[in-house]
Amino acid sequence: MRSPSSFRNRARRVQSRHSPFRPSLLLLGIVIGIILGAVYGFWIDPVKMSDALPSGLRSDARDQYVMLVAAAYMQDRNLDRAKQRLAPLGDPARAVITTAQKLVAQGKDPGALVTLATILTGAAAPMTQATAIMAASPVKPPTPTSRVTLPPTAAQTSAATSSLTPSADFKLITNEKYCNDVERKPLIIVDTVDENNKPLAGVRVMIKWAEGQDGFVTGLKPEISNSYGDFLMQVGTTYSVQVGSRTPPVTGIGTSTCVSSRNIPYPGATRLVFKREK
């Protein structure tokens, strides 16, 4: 006499033998399906953002956008429009400086970005805003060894022709001839340091001469130093250099004469170091 439970077990076995489903094979198929589906859903045809704002751009596209804003600014010189275009990216100056730093780090010419950064950092919030940005930005630390050191004979500290007042935001602490036998470029080199003599980036520097003016922001060549900025002089032209917004300009800057190791004269650079006043 068979019990009711043995009948139930037999019935279950018969049913199982005729069921088309095999759990192990089904599971194998699901695993294969998940892999194939993931490849398709994540790589082949992923979900894409549409109607994106500039703030939603990928890093490289964002840089491209900022470069376009700077290039467009060179055409219309409309600062409000440039600011408006950069507004979705947050702080306009920060956006421009960050992109400029990336280009410099890649060994590319930041071009119009420098002009726009100079105007943006200089117009409304001279120095302070850009300084904070540059100090906080992930740029390479200063590499003092990358700078060519002055030969002792070339160093010639001269009295500054500027007349500093206590209201100045920077004090000129060094004004010297700078000879670099390798580059031989007649540069105006500006270094800016803070009250503790630490490199200070993002400081607006204006260069003026009889026929025109130009400007740059320190720290755009982080491979040299976060506090570094330079300008290529024309031989025979006299320049004035103004750092910050309240410091009187240093006037009478021009090319000096350096002599190479083979006794060949070439136009030398002038190096100015400014220290931020407390």
């Binding site: 089904l26 294969i32 894409k48």
Partner: peptide, 29 residues
Amino acid sequence: NILIGVIIGSVLAIGYAWSRPPKADDATL
């Protein structure tokens, strides 16, 4: 069995991939 599994797995994976919002900073121009 394998085909049924593949279909179920694909639907699950694609559904998951497409239901996730795109990254907010991943757009191109």
